[in-house]
Design a protein around this nucleic acid. Structure first.
Length: 606
RNA sequence: GGAGGCGUGGUGUAGCUGGUCUAACAUACCUGCCUGUCACGCAGGAGAUCGCGGGUUCGAAUCCCGUCGCUUCCGCCA
């Protein structure tokens, strides 16, 4: 570069610079060639500024500017001038000034880009990912990445200020049983052996507690070979935290302080502390979800008491079988057509419900409610009115009822609630609704494996008061688990760990793990615990999701510089690729089913 | 593994109840004109065998089957 850059373009919003000569460098945005005058929008990561090329100022610069194309990289010098009245652009921060170019050097020509380098781009995401370096040139993506950086710094600064030590843990680790599918790396020097990439640094952070690191954190890369979603990538980042000599509320208080501090530092907004807390059981009863979106109401209401003796087989049968009849109220939906209600029924059926009953509440004059429903064939008028009363349905509302097994009723109504919340636009988009969900069950029964498995992980501490149930009724033992939920998204999950040997053994026994098997699988951790393990607990916060929600995005791909597609492919680099026969041999690996090798991602493949 | 949506010039879309579709519109691109534009304007031009394969038909962007890719969701994610 011939000239040394003196300013970022965004700095020119400061009118004190008027009259000064500046040297700028950046990319050419739009060019407006008026024949005599040429305007360009010069862009760097601080913003854009308009540069004017006037042949009277510099014929040389002007004629060079006539040949500029989109995304050429240029160096411009000139005087910052106040724009003539009426020519100001108040929609951009630098809109009151121009740079009157005296000198222009093209540092690098650009091919015509495959899409516009502009905000609010609507273009196929594969194309964005293939040209991610151009996509990341767009101002909104630059803002996202810079925002993520700020959030990273806020997290690190906060935790540092609280005496936390960031420790890096290995990426090549031993595969541990349970949990997600591992990404696996073959070992060249150990034929037939494989490393796993960490699903989280769980065991290492507990070892660090044994080592006396008291307060550990890490912005940790984690890897899980599971199918992708808008908020799930195969590699992702967690704010991983572990603390010694703490109880649950110490962790919750710390995280509340961290999250609100980060919010203030990055968004400049605050939110009330402490966050709302709710037991898992309550979350399920009221919202049919272990991660309720509490930005809106429409809670689930049990109507079992009203219909338990109604004689309608579907309702009564559900209750007699130990199930449930419950409802939600869709506000202002009493005029839903049969087809619209059928569509809602499809939603609950998708989650196992047998069907959906509805009661439309309308005004019958004289303040009377008219209830119309296919249920009037089966229920008495009093029973229908009873339902309207406990659900507090008002004129114009539609009561939606599901009967069946408890978890099916709750989950399907919970999903229907979310569906309607979005459809009816009931969810305030500008709110940050944090929530702690606590007291999860310690175990659940895995239908697939036909055995009891840990809900969180096998080192999660049971609640003291439920210890007695461990042998008699393990599935109702509650754990000292806490999930942080933000706007219906699971942000993080943590627990107080077991540090007592006897408790750990009882948990293993409940999981059907013999002493020998436990040694084999987690031996190093158990052994470590025999050398003085402090009571400890921690949490891991999904950093990408936090960044996504704070940045107001709908997918974590928007806050990850180089994300993967839903098939876990990188359209930019073509990863994952095939490797040579030599590489395979060196790794002692044979590809069994060559016929299954797909072509997605890899441009080298046929 | 399953369900839905999408796939048409570089980009975003229209066309999709089969026949002047010899594929339209906008924008980007090229050429020319233009001294206050800022999504500059005006005039002209080039650019797509409609994701791919097969079938039905005299005739397919359009109908059918298969397949690939992207995406949302279910399963899965200690």
């Amino acid at each position: 570069m011939q000239k040394k850059r003196t300013h970022m373009v965004g700095e020119l919003a400061d009118e004190a610079l008027i009259g000064k000569t500046v040297v700028l460098a950046g990319w050419v945005g739009r060019r407006r060639d008026l024949g005599g005058l040429v305007f360009i929008d010069l862009r760097d990561r601080s913003g854009i500024v308009q540069v004017v090329f006037n042949p009277e100022t510099s014929p040389l610069a002007h004629s060079a500017a006539e040949k500029l194309g989109s995304e050429d990289v240029v160096c411009v010098s000139g005087v910052v001038v106040r724009r003539p009245p009426g020519a100001r652009n108040l929609t951009i921060p630098t809109g009151k000034v121009d740079v009157a170019a005296e000198f222009l050097e093209v540092l690098s020509k650009s091919k015509t880009p495959p899409f516009y380098i502009t905000e609010n781009l609507d273009v196929d995401e594969t194309l964005r990912l293939k040209y991610r370096y151009l996509d990341l040139r767009r101002p909104d993506m630059q803002r996202n990445m810079i925002f993520r950086h700020r959030l990273t710094m806020a997290v690190r600064n906060f935790l540092d200020s609280q005496g936390f030590v960031e420790v890096e843990t290995p990426m090549f680790i031993k595969s541990t049983p349970e949990g997600a599918r591992d990404y696996v790396v073959p070992s060249r020097v150990n034929p037939g052996r494989f490393f796993a990439l960490p699903q989280s640094p769980q065991l290492f952070k507990q070892l660090l507690m044994v080592s006396g690191f008291d307060r550990y954190f890490q912005l940790a890369r984690c890897f899980r070979d599971e199918d992708l979603r808008a908020d799930r990538q195969p590699e992702f980042t967690q704010i991983d935290i572990e603390m010694s000599f703490v109880e649950r509320d110490d962790v919750l208080t710390l995280i509340e302080a961290m999250v609100t501090d980060c919010m203030e530092k990055t968004l400049g907004t605050s939110v009330e502390k402490p966050f709302l807390r709710m037991s898992y059981a309550e979350a399920m009863e009221r919202y049919g979800s272990d991660k309720p979106d509490i930005r809106f109401g429409m809670e689930i209401i049990d109507i079992g008491d009203i219909v338990k003796n109604c004689g309608f087989r579907v309702f009564q049968g559900a209750i007699e079988a130990g199930g449930k009849v419950a409802a939600i109220v869709a506000p202002g939906c009493s005029d839903f057509s049969r087809q619209q209600i059928k569509d809602l029924e499809e939603v609950v059926k998708g989650f196992g419900a047998a069907g959906l009953m509805s009661v439309a509440v309308s005004c019958g004059g004289e303040g009377e409610q008219t209830l119309s429903s296919q249920l009037s064939k089966f229920l008495t008028e009093d029973e229908l009115r009873g339902i309207a009363k406990v659900t507090a349905a008002e004129n114009g509302d539609l009561i939606l009822i599901v009967a069946g097994a408890r978890n099916v009723v709750l989950e399907s109504l919970g999903r229907l609630r979310l569906h309607l919340g979005a459809k009816l636009d009931l969810i305030p988009q500008d709110q940050m609704a944090f929530l702690w969900v606590t007291e999860f069950p310690l175990f659940e029964f895995s239908q697939e494996e036909q055995r009891i498995v840990a809900v969180h992980h096998p080192f999660t501490s049971p609640l003291e008061e439920d210890l007695d149930l461990m042998e008699t009724d393990p599935l109702s033992v509650r754990a000292n688990i806490y999930d942080l939920v933000l706007n219906g998204v699971e942000l993080g999950s943590g627990s107080i760990r077991i540090h007592r040997r006897d408790v750990q053994e009882r948990v293993f026994r409940a999981l059907g793990l013999g002493e020998e098997e436990a040694r084999e699988k987690f031996g190093f951790l158990l052994e470590a615990f025999e050398y003085g393990a402090p009571p400890h607990g921690g949490i891991a916060i999904g950093f990408d999701r936090l960044a996504m929600l704070f940045a107001g995005r709908k997918t974590i791909r928007d806050v990850i510089a180089f994300p993967k597609t839903q098939k876990a492919v990188c359209p930019l680099t073509g990863a994952p690729g095939v490797i040579s026969e030599e590489q395979l041999n060196e790794l002692h690996i044979q590809v069994v089913d060559m016929g299954k090798i797909g072509t997605s991602g890899d441009p080298e493949l046929p």
